[in-house]
């Protein structure tokens, strides 16, 4: 009898486990792609058979036709670019403000108390509620739209920054105190690095909120943009184009989120 254990059975078991894991992965990917395909097919069939009210629920084919028409005419690219520039600008202002106010609120309890009521009242106000006021204050040019988006982006960044700073492990700070490190060093070397994961999450959520804000910001006083496209389609009774606009917002939104999540993972490899 061999003094070495017979590993052939164990190897065979590993092999079958690997096969079943691959099968599971394949099934998962099939579900990922298959479910929306099945949904679209059922939707198209329902439209073709007259089951749906096409005045309010257009078929996927008519939405696709609208997508092709807008792409070929170049308007889709123009509208997308107009919205994206607004979102980036709005996000930059909103995120910058959120980082600053969140950091101050996280570091200084007195600052947090001083701003609690004002921020608490402003936070629940939806972006769309601010639009008429901003148009009154800033006119119908880009500023009113960018600032509406900024007001949407600020809150996730602010709250996550403040929360990230407040939730630093107190033991780390205690160690720094024992080692007689000054406040600036504690902030730079312990508090801010610890808050980075929460901060990055806030930035990611802030950008998603900013992107969703284009519908509200471009509802009035716009000449271009994906939100304008939806308003335009609404006024002209074109539900297929409305769906197209919403589809673009949803698809771009999820792509942005995936990219930002990957970026976040990369930046936080040290965590």
């Amino acid at each position: 009898m061999s003094k070495f254990p017979d590993r052939r059975d164990a190897f065979a078991e590993d092999e079958s486990l690997r096969h079943s894991r691959i099968a599971e992965q394949i099934v998962n990917y099939l579900l990922l792609i298959g479910s929306p395909v099945i949904l679209l097919a059922v939707w198209q069939l329902a439209g073709d058979r007259g089951v749906l009210n096409l005045s309010i629920v257009p078929t996927p084919k008519t939405i696709l036709d609208a997508l092709v028409a807008f792409t070929v005419s170049g308007r889709l690219a123009d509208y997308f670019l107009a919205s994206f520039v607004r979102v980036v600008a709005g996000f930059a202002i909103g995120a910058g403000s959120g980082l600053l106010i969140g950091a101050l609120g996280g570091i200084s309890v007195k600052f947090a108390y001083a701003t609690a009521v004002v921020l608490g009242v402003l936070r629940p106000i939806p972006m769309i509620g601010l639009l008429p006021l901003f148009i009154l204050w800033f006119g119908i040019d880009e500023w009113s739209k960018i600032l509406v988006i900024a007001m949407g982006a600020i809150w996730p960044v602010l709250l996550n920054t403040e929360g990230g700073i407040r939730n630093v492990d107190p033991k780390h700070i205690e160690v720094a105190r024992i080692l007689m490190k000054d406040k600036a060093t504690v902030l730079r070397k312990i508090i801010f690095p610890s808050a980075v994961p929460s901060l990055l999450t806030g930035l990611r959520l802030g950008f998603s909120t900013a992107w969703r804000g284009i519908v509200a910001s471009e509802m009035i006083g716009a000449s271009a943009g994906v939100g304008y496209l939806i308003s335009y389609a609404r006024e002209l009774s074109q539900p297929a184009v409305m769906f197209l606009g919403l589809f673009i917002i949803g698809t771009v939104g999820i792509l942005i989120d995936i990219v930002l999540q990957r970026l976040e993972k990369r930046l936080l490899r040290w965590v």
Partner: peptide, 11 residues
């Protein structure tokens, strides 16, 4: 099917 039913209800 549920989504389809809801759309039919809308119709």
């Amino acid at each position: 099917g549920t989504a389809l039913f809801s759309a039919c209800a809308g119709n």
